[in-house]
Amino acid sequence: MIVLNQVSKSYGGKIKAVDQIDLTVENGEIFGFLGPNGAGKTTTIKMITGILTPDSGAITLNGIDLGKDPLQAKKTFGYVPDDPNVFPRLKAMEYLQFMGNLYNVPSELRAGRIEEMAARFELKDALGDRIQSFSHGMRQKLMIIGALLHHPDVWILDEPMTGLDPRSSYQLKEMMRQHADSGRTVFFSTHVLDVAERVCDRVAVIDRGKILFCGTIAAMRNHFQSSDSLESMFLELVDRDPEKAAGLDGDLE
């Protein structure tokens, strides 16, 4: 479970990237975080993962306050960053062992998990290669395996489908569903609205640092009294006057 309470972040004291947002992602749900470029998605995710410190507000992960007990909070989640270009000169296996060690994945479980996920994402034949020889998609798969190796309760995935081939994308979506169905949390950002529509239990739309909408797709349809696609409702939301849009803050359910 992820709870954001009145979280704000500005850069250089001027540009408010995230403006007093409240967000609760329940256990057992896949939560999609949507918004146009520069809306505040990645800043929010970076705050949830401890990469950025909020100017104000509090973030808890599975009840652990990130500000007060960052190490325990960080152990609860697995994070896939939006840029998979990490440590290009390490071999894939070295990277996975690095992650396994830092997240204390027991030796007896680690090997099995690496093999199982590498097979699932068709990366087994390249585990002995340096990451720099990988394509974007392969790097993305490696990031996903590394992030999920310790079987975290909370998955935080920033644009996880980018660069994935259809089979791997399908696999990941299946894994997200299984994870949520087992009572745990998946929080992911995406630009691909079709994916959000098909996969997410709930979505939040952020623009100019404010949450414009938070709820189920059905609730959004209900609100707009429309049977349009998520794409058209999304466009209508973010194209609105910011003053009016601010009035839509909060959960519409």
């Binding site: 034949d125 390249a126 585990l127 290669d129 020889s133």
Partner: peptide
């Protein structure tokens, strides 16, 4: 374009 031998483990 980097090349790799694709070494399985």
């Amino acid at each position: 374009a980097s090349t790799a031998r694709r070494r399985a483990v």
